[in-house]
């Protein structure tokens, strides 16, 4: 097993055991409920940053004639290569973040252990949607330095304007429309509602389902269409 796994799990443990615990003493929400709430957000946000960093680096290297040059010689369509990368990385991220999610559910809501496979399925959907988002950004820009700036902005903007660390009720009015259209808010809220977190802290499920379905259709469509722009040499055409 790679040394990265214990490092990432220790970091998650520190974030939940120290950061989330200390914040829970300051917020005007029941301590136990807030720790449950923010823990799910921390796991998902760490996974999100990890996918953007790892998959982003990989796709940037696709544009260069380096390690992945041989991939282009395979008898595969461009979108199949991208689909394989997204699925491969999603599976890799699941092996890292599904065990902490399972541990969290076992500690905070042991009665919900039966719904763990469903929670892992939501996590897999999250990883695939974010993978498609990364691919869409990469193929619509092309230059590595511009992609890195775009990744940072997308990563940080989506993280801040989401309900990962704070419930929707406490978000200032001017930011609320951005939080509503952010796919992360809905994906995390879906996982939080399945983990038995108080529904008064979550977004309206009537909004979550159509927004998530839209993203699940639009993002892969953009990613796979734009992936056809990669020419033989790896550059965009």
């Amino acid at each position: 097993m790679s040394t990265v796994y214990p490092l990432r799990w220790s970091m998650l443990g520190l974030q939940i055991g120290f950061f989330a615990y200390v914040l829970s003493l300051m917020v005007p929400i029941d301590r136990y409920i807030y720790i449950q709430y923010i823990s799910m957000g921390i796991i998902y946000m760490t996974m999100y940053s990890s996918i953007i960093g790892a998959l982003g680096d990989l796709i940037v290297s696709l544009f260069r004639r380096e390690l992945y040059f041989y991939i282009y010689s395979l008898p595969l369509r461009r979108f199949e290569i991208v689909l394989a990368l997204v699925l491969g990385y999603s599976a890799l991220e699941l092996t890292t973040y599904a065990p902490p999610l399972a541990a969290l559910i076992m500690i905070t809501s042991p009665s919900l252990i039966a719904s763990l496979p469903l929670l892992i399925l939501v996590m897999a959907a999250f990883a695939i949607i974010i993978g498609c988002l990364v691919a869409s950004i990469s193929f619509s820009i092309g230059k590595p330095w511009q992609i890195y700036i775009a990744f940072t902005l997308v990563s940080e903007v989506f993280t801040r304007f989401s309900t990962a660390y704070y419930p929707y009720n406490y978000i200032v009015d001017i930011y609320r429309p951005l939080v509503i259209i952010n796919p992360l808010s809905h994906l995390i809220n879906l996982a939080q509602s399945m983990a038995g977190i108080d529904r008064s802290l979550l977004l309206d499920p009537g909004l979550t389902i159509p927004i998530l379905i839209s993203y699940a259709v639009i993002l892969p469509l953009i990613a796979f269409t734009l992936s056809e722009r990669i020419s033989e040499g790896g550059r965009l055409v």
């Binding site: 917020v27 005007p28 330095w145 700036i149 940072t152 902005l153 200032v172 930011y175």
Partner: peptide, 30 residues
């Protein structure tokens, strides 16, 4: 410049979004 821009934009987002929302939640002293 890409690195400097990234660090500045993260700081601006932290101050303009995270700090503002958390202060709204915890209280203005935060």
């Amino acid at each position: 410049y890409a690195t400097i821009f990234n660090i500045l934009s993260i700081a601006a987002l932290d101050l303009g979004v995270y700090a503002l929302i958390m202060s709204n939640m915890i209280g203005s002293k935060y």
